[in-house]
Nucleic acid binder design. Structure first.
Length: 493
RNA sequence: GCUCGUAUAGUGUAGUGGCCCAUCAUGAAGGACUCUCAUUCCUUCGACCCGGGUUCAAAUCCCGGUACGAGCACCA
């Protein structure tokens, strides 16, 4: 047996747990093109981060390209926000650590979409439909073909020109892709590809586009054509777009193109946030409910960033969730644990006192004492507390015990507002508290997003010179982000 | 209603017919270290939706059920 079938004797290797993202099908090094296509109707949100991280990670792993595409083809329902065109690329770069390789703006590419729409009409796999939405809905449900379906090519071209020249107004006509009205899935039956928008009343917010076009492609058509034009090889997106894939595949068959490989992820909810939409956030900001897109309470990328969540934490978080099609609900604690891993090593320790109470030191004490900036990294230096005045601050809450230890300093016995110095050595298990010397304490505020509100906690902070944006750990409280020398934003425990 | 999809510990996740009385993370509990309620480390807890079938063998394949989600927009 050893000679004839040695493989049967070999102990099979223990399967190893797959690390990172699942294998990309049909991929070859250097030839992968992916895209992330948000509607620029606001800055990026937490959910968008998944699209950027996953697509970006694959692009990186396969030495390919990531396209950032603005799907800004709606000027009425979800009109784009001009600032988003600048902000999104910056946010994407912050999150990825590299710039997207290409940026495509759909509203710049309308002529291309017209070209393919005309080709579709000429080859007779598309038609101009003058039925109302209601009327077509009935055809769709009853699997019957609408009369417009039998227009000949010339008639369609004639109607198409009326769409373009303004003879038709929104609702008068749309261009449909001929699939089949017999398709099992109603969503796929002769789906709409282009429609008319009233761009005099609702101009496109980009000045260079404005009211230039009346006819605009719908997502499925625009995206399908653009993916082909850009040579996209893999589409990874939410599973709510599964039927989109099926619609687009039918269009690709008409054109004789090959559809990219696809992967989908399910819906993600965050326990603590529930649902939110870009449009709703936009209204709430405009009405003054939130201070801006970077409001600490908002699940936008910029909001999370201002709260102190790092790009690295976000990346690791989304990669850990992977690309499963399950609909999931994650607790913020998961994101926070990634964030702690990302910041703790570099976070200087700082004291912040809530309800500060002043005590006077009684007994012999040194003029100053020094403690580490970071307990695990002596290289980060020391901070020095000046004790010449013999006055210190502690949190009122910590005065419940009379016998306490001032961290890094000495044991004290409390008698009212007087603290009698005891052993310098730690010789018992009394509670250890954080404290500040009077001369090193500055009035300060700790901002905290909680239950949809921003609470301000007044207190005393240890004087420091860390630049804005520095992530610090406030001892016994949690991690925070430095706004200025006397303001902190609480990140998480 | 029609169509599509998903179902593994509290929460995520690995697993594509035998390595699985099921991986890893997070969480919870306990402990070690530590002059922070931090970090790090250790231990423990805890799961294959239900019912059939195929097979020598099923978390893995098939059928049915159930639950949840999505699409059926002249939104993206």
């Amino acid at each position: 047996m050893e000679k004839e079938a040695p493989h049967l004797l070999e102990k099979r290797e223990k399967k190893e747990r797959r690390e990172g993202l699942p294998e990309l099908k049909n991929a070859s090094k250097g030839k992968v093109v992916l895209r992330f296509a948000p509607n620029p109707n606001g800055p990026l949100s937490f959910g968008h981060a998944r699209g950027i991280v996953i697509n970006g990670k694959y692009a990186q792993e396969w030495d390919g390209e990531l396209i950032l595409r603005f799907d800004d083809t709606d000027t009425v329902v979800k009109p784009p926000l001009p600032m988003a065109y600048d902000q999104i690329p910056e946010e994407a770069e912050w999150l990825l650590g590299f710039k997207p390789h290409r940026i495509v703006i759909a509203s710049d590419r309308i002529p291309h979409y017209y070209t393919y729409a005309e080709r579709m009409l000429q080859r007779n796999f598309g038609y101009v439909c003058q039925c109302s939405g209601e009327a077509f809905k009935e055809f769709r449900v009853s699997k019957t073909e609408c009369p417009c379906r039998n227009n000949d090519v010339d008639a369609n071209l004639e109607l198409w020109s009326k769409m373009l020249d303004g003879t038709f107004v929104p609702g008068d006509a749309v261009v449909r892709v001929k699939t089949s009205m017999q398709l099992k899935n109603p969503a796929l039956r002769d789906w709409p590809a282009l429609r008319i928008q009233n761009t005099s009343e609702h101009p496109h917010p980009r000045k260079e586009v404005g009211s230039k076009y009346r006819v605009w492609p719908l997502l499925d058509f625009q995206s399908a054509v653009e993916d082909h034009l850009q040579g996209v090889t893999h589409i990874i997106r939410g599973k709510d777009l599964m039927d989109s894939t099926r619609k687009q595949t039918l269009l690709y068959e008409h054109f004789g193109w090959d559809y990219p490989e696809t992967m989908y992820w399910g819906r993600v909810k965050v326990h603590e946030w529930g649902g939110f939409s870009t449009s709703q956030m936009r209204r709430d900001i405009e009405s003054g409910l939130f201070s801006g897109w970077d409001d600490l309470r908002l699940p936008t990328l910029t909001g999370l960033r201002s709260r102190g969540i790092t790009a690295e934490a976000l990346r690791n978080f989304w990669i850990e969730l992977g690309v499963t099609q399950k609909d999931i609900s994650v607790p913020l604690a998961t994101l926070f644990s990634h964030n702690i891993k990302s910041i703790d090593d570099d976070a200087p320790r700082l004291s912040f006192l809530r309800n500060p109470t002043k005590l006077s030191l009684k007994g012999q004490h040194p003029q100053s004492i020094s403690v580490d900036v970071h307990p695990n990294h002596a290289s980060m230096g020391e901070r020095k507390f000046d004790l010449a005045k013999g006055e210190i601050w502690v949190e009122a809450n910590d005065m419940k015990n009379d016998e306490i230890r001032l961290k890094g300093f000495a044991n004290v016995s409390l008698k009212g507002r007087e603290a009698y110095l005891g052993s310098i050595e730690r010789d018992d298990r009394r509670p250890i508290i954080h404290w500040l010397s009077e001369s090193n304490a500055v009035d300060a505020e700790l901002l905290l997003a909680e239950d949809g509100e921003i609470r301000t906690i007044q207190g005393k902070i240890e004087n420091h010179t860390y630049p804005p944006g520095t992530m610090v750990q406030i001892e016994r409280i949690g991690y925070a982000k430095v706004i200025d020398s006397t303001t902190l934003v609480f990140t998480h425990d």
